[in-house]
Amino acid sequence: MSRFRTLPKVELHLHAEGTLEPELAFALARRNGIELPFASEAELRAAYDFTDLQSFLDLYYATTAVLWTRRDFDDLLWAYLQRSAEQGLQHVEVFFDPQAHTVRGVAFTDIVDGLGDALTRARTELGITGGLIMCFLRDRPVTEAARTLDEAATRLDALLGVGLDSAEVGFPPGPFAEVFARAAQLGLRRVAHAGEEAPASSVLEALDTLGVERIDHGVRALDDPHLVERLVREEIPLTVCPLSNLRLRVVDDLARHPLPAMLAAGLKVSLHSDDPAYFGGYVGDTFDAVARSLGLDDETAALLSRNAVAGSFATAERKTELLTAIERWLTGPR
């Protein structure tokens, strides 16, 4: 086992729907009487050869059709939590896309309650804490996002915050400003995907129009030195997903990923798995892949985990526990 597997980890960039492994997809399809457009699990996995973000999203949303009930969403997230617990996961803030399901007739409460069931069980059985971040799909109408927030307002106890995801190119953050302002009024934390395929200006727009507290991806921020200075000055967390960047052709070689340059610039970056079932690695796998391709010593690995803790929405008490666990790992036997 890699030493990095035992490093206490926090995932801040993890899509529940992106943890749907082919085996579970077919099991849920059989349970719900749904026919997937693939003959076998192997054929579905072979389709994970993406050319860009949109080609991934096309498959991603096709497979979510197997998710229908509270039990389905519980099973989905529980499978991820069990697997990631073995790779050092101790806290996770889970993205989910209610619009991808409610438009199919799935009840919003079944989505939230199913995912919540898994998180409750994880706390007691695995020692993993966390919460849910409801994401709006930026390639769907803003009015639909507003209606989704209206529905979420009845279940604020189940949510940490809101986010913005899906296709970046052609769908800037700005139009969602009013929805995010209302989310803030409701006491929800705010994050957004920006600077993955879209330019550095999308990061700036997310900060200024949505008031987000952290940026998901943000690798293109390095293209704008003034933006980098601001991100460093304001200590804005960037949740970086190297395996995702590789599989979606944001970078053509993990050895040329901008992570080292981001760290050298003083950016508050951390490592995450994004959609691990599709991108070939869970959180521990991500650390191992970075170690192989970019080199990763214990001090840097601990820094990346500390950054994730600092950027999380965990309580101050939980953050102290996590930071203590990281320091114990760093000073422990090699």
Rank of each mutant, 00 (worst) to 15 (best):
residue 81 L to N: 07
residue 289 A to E: 09
residue 327 E to L: 12
residue 87 Q to W: 02
residue 107 A to E: 10
residue 86 E to V: 03
residue 41 E to V: 14
residue 132 L to N: 08
residue 44 L to T: 05
residue 74 D to K: 14
residue 63 T to Y: 09
residue 300 T to A: 02
residue 310 A to Y: 07
residue 276 P to F: 04
residue 324 T to P: 08
residue 25 A to S: 14
residue 266 G to Q: 05
residue 331 T to R: 15
residue 290 V to Y: 00
residue 230 R to A: 03
residue 269 V to W: 00
residue 268 K to T: 09
residue 193 H to Y: 06
residue 246 L to Y: 04
residue 303 L to A: 12
residue 270 S to R: 05
residue 227 L to M: 14
residue 60 Y to M: 12
residue 168 E to V: 11
residue 333 P to E: 02
residue 206 A to K: 02
residue 110 D to L: 00
residue 272 H to Q: 04
residue 58 D to T: 15
residue 276 P to S: 05
residue 233 R to V: 01
residue 271 L to P: 03
residue 235 E to L: 04
residue 182 R to D: 05
residue 48 Y to I: 07
residue 8 P to T: 01
residue 117 D to L: 15
residue 304 L to C: 06
residue 151 E to G: 12
residue 316 A to T: 14
residue 255 A to V: 04
residue 316 A to M: 06
residue 155 R to E: 04
residue 94 V to F: 06
residue 4 F to K: 03
residue 49 D to G: 09
residue 178 E to S: 12
residue 306 R to C: 04
residue 265 A to N: 05
residue 210 L to H: 02
residue 315 T to I: 05
residue 111 I to L: 15
residue 152 A to H: 09
residue 169 V to N: 08
residue 18 G to W: 08
residue 150 D to T: 14
residue 63 T to V: 15
residue 164 L to R: 03
residue 197 E to W: 14
residue 63 T to W: 10
residue 47 A to P: 15
residue 233 R to M: 02
residue 187 G to T: 10
residue 190 R to E: 06
residue 61 Y to N: 14
residue 261 A to N: 11
residue 80 Y to Q: 08
residue 171 F to G: 02
